[in-house]
């Protein structure tokens, strides 16, 4: 009852990065709990995935050979059964889009508490989880008053484990009730590419909520024209239909690594940061000196974009 069970994630034949990050957080937590780390792999090429996840800190890998792709009904059943077999005190799940689709169901089925989107976990006596609130403006700690709990872990928050280990690999024979599988994944679709690939650009000028209105876009387009940069944006601009989806930087859009990323009126929500933190030089123009984007920026101007942007266009023309 002191072990950790972490459920890994894959898609279209490849393990997702969060899987080896779960090994890092899971082995740290297992050490604190005085227990071992178990990994669950559900569906896909489980043997190949198990080889790839034979990493330091993992004691046992349980493979559930059922289906090719994620299905939340199958994952919920298989995870609950693995949980029953391993009897961990902490169940770790990815706070990915698919994690959002089954972690709450697993916790509800098992009748254990769930804390989502953890950026820190410790068990010193009771389980304590660090998570953000109010769009990353504050951090909170949440205490869990239960012997057994589930925690979903924010992707890209922990470093992946890369050192090889020697876990035992066991096939787990999950008893999946097919009548309870009431959703069917029929395919995947890539979001339309369009004429521009922002991930190829050397210089991205990226706009966010701070632009306020669609009528203000020409201000930015003048700057883009003067600099020969490529225009991209954070999510709200695309949600509003002001720019097409292929311009979106972030978790659900494109991951970009330009020489310069100029973030204008972008606060830097975690989903956006996931898509641009690998840029060589990050410049932020924002009125809020405490905006999360400022933690990432190499250069910053704390001022009104409606004053700075026209001045910058003038200076470059």
């Amino acid at each position: 009852m002191s072990d950790v069970l972490a459920i890994t994630e894959h898609r279209q034949g490849e393990l997702r990065d969060v899987s080896s990050e779960l090994v890092t957080v899971g082995s740290e937590l297992a050490a604190q709990q005085g227990g071992a780390l178990h990994l669950g792999i559900i569906g896909g090429d489980v043997d190949a995935f198990a080889d790839e996840l034979s990493l330091e800190g993992v004691e046992t890998i349980h493979t559930v050979d059922h289906g090719d792709e994620f299905n939340h009904d199958v994952y919920t059943q298989a995870t609950a059964q693995l949980f029953g077999a391993v009897e961990p005190s902490t169940l770790l799940l990815p706070n990915s889009v698919n994690g959002l689709d089954y972690a709450p169901a697993v916790a509800s089925t098992l009748d254990i508490p769930l804390v989502t989107d953890a950026i820190g976990i410790s068990r010193d006596g009771g389980l304590e989880v660090t998570r953000e609130m109010y769009g990353s403006k504050v951090e909170t700690t949440v205490a869990v008053d239960a012997d057994v709990a589930a925690v979903s872990v924010r992707p890209a928050e922990w470093e992946p484990t890369t050192d090889a280990g020697d876990p035992s690999i066991e096939s787990f024979d999950a008893d999946i009730d097919e009548d309870a599988v009431k959703s069917t994944v029929t395919g995947f679709e890539a979001v339309a590419g369009g004429d521009v690939d922002i991930s190829e650009a050397d210089f991205l000028i990226s706009i966010g909520r701070g632009i306020e209105e669609e009528d203000n876009l020409p201000l930015i387009k003048d700057l883009v024209e003067a600099t020969d940069a490529t225009l991209s944006s954070s999510r709200p601009i695309v949600d509003n239909g002001w720019l097409p989806k292929n311009r979106q930087v972030g978790q659900s859009g494109k991951v970009v690594t330009p020489d310069v990323y100029l973030a204008i009126g972008i606060s830097g929500a975690v989903q956006h940061v996931a898509g641009m933190k690998g840029s060589d030089t990050i410049v932020a123009i924002n009125t809020d000196p405490n905006a999360p984007i400022m933690d990432l920026a190499d250069y910053a101007i704390v001022d009104d974009l409606f004053d700075v942007v026209p001045a910058l266009t003038d200076a470059l023309e």
């Binding site: 951090e139 700690t141 920026a297």
Partner: peptide, 20 residues
């Protein structure tokens, strides 16, 4: 509820931006 918030704080800025 089994969950309780025990602390809230502003995260320490990790930024070292050059501010113009």
């Amino acid at each position: 509820s089994p969950l309780s918030r025990t602390a809230m704080y502003e995260p320490e800025s990790e930024g070292d931006a050059t501010v113009f």
